[in-house]
Design a protein around this nucleic acid. Sequence first.
DNA 1: GAAGATTGAGTGTTCAATCTTT
DNA 2: AAAGATTGAACACTCAATCTTC
Lengths: 179, 179
Amino acid sequence: VSVVVIHSQPDQDADRIDEVLEFWRNENPDLDVTTKGLSMRLRRSCRLLERAMRQELATMDVEMWEMEMLFSLRRAPGLQRSAGALLRETGVTSGAITNRLSRLEEHGWVRRDTDLTDRRQVLVTLTDAGRARANELIAVKTNAEARLYSGVPRETLERLGADLRALLTSIDQDLPGEY
Amino acid sequence: VSVVVIHSQPDQDADRIDEVLEFWRNENPDLDVTTKGLSMRLRRSCRLLERAMRQELATMDVEMWEMEMLFSLRRAPGLQRSAGALLRETGVTSGAITNRLSRLEEHGWVRRDTDLTDRRQVLVTLTDAGRARANELIAVKTNAEARLYSGVPRETLERLGADLRALLTSIDQDLPGEY
DNA sequence: GAAGATTGAGTGTTCAATCTTT
DNA sequence: AAAGATTGAACACTCAATCTTC
């Protein structure tokens, strides 16, 4: 006679990732599950939130990269940054920046001028329409974020923010600059 | 006469993101900076870690998507999953799965067979070479992770993992399934 | 020669349309 | 019809090569 045990519900908050970790720990008991679990949850949280935000923005016909560019310019002194500065803010390659700028320019959100002090550089300026658009989007994004996190205790959110800052200050040093 | 104040060094651990938050709070004092900061730090952590891991793997001529597929199959019962199951594990579209499988098949890591019980389905099996490759990669990835997180106190890492799990259990419900 | 931006080739994704099997 | 996998077009990225300006 054999008995089959069906765990009605795994303990507390065990999620799908706990099962995956369990597998690897079974394969190699010496494995450090803490760092591996953190990596997986970080990645998954990021993907889910990004997907949710993308859906949210799709209703307004906005892409993530568009927001990223518009917001960076919105924060810039004089609503203006060089293409290189935008590159460093967003962390994408120079080729990507060129493409993004062309598309933003077509929509009339930004203007491109050559810097007269150093004619190698391109100065990108947010137009009035672009500024209006940015203001509109920041509200949408903020609301969406608030809604997404509404199920988590405020205390947890604040602790997460603080701990992630600690993580960032640690790994930012080792890695090539970006923003 | 004007006085220019150069802040020698912002307080404690204020990172670049704090400056961005400061800007928006200045624009709108009612703004909830907690959720916004969390979003930004989550995204940035994820990007930085992913970039670091990608560099690490490049030395072994591996891509992230390759690892993702190999590991999912490595954990599967009988080292085998249907294409649809892989789709749900990885969260990419069916078209992407088809492409990935073709490339993995060319390298000889996996084999594709039609399921005889339901000939619509494709059963993907990890070959011996694929299994060896997966074992090799899990070691590389684990070492890289340990090194990346080495600058952060263990206590913080564990708390981060726990809090992220709480976040995931909250947002996973609202969002369309994936894995 | 080096720095900044642009171009083009190669890569990998999504999305919609299609084909096969149920 | 519906489900599962494949195909091809569109898109956005990286990387390396190029052009202009310093």
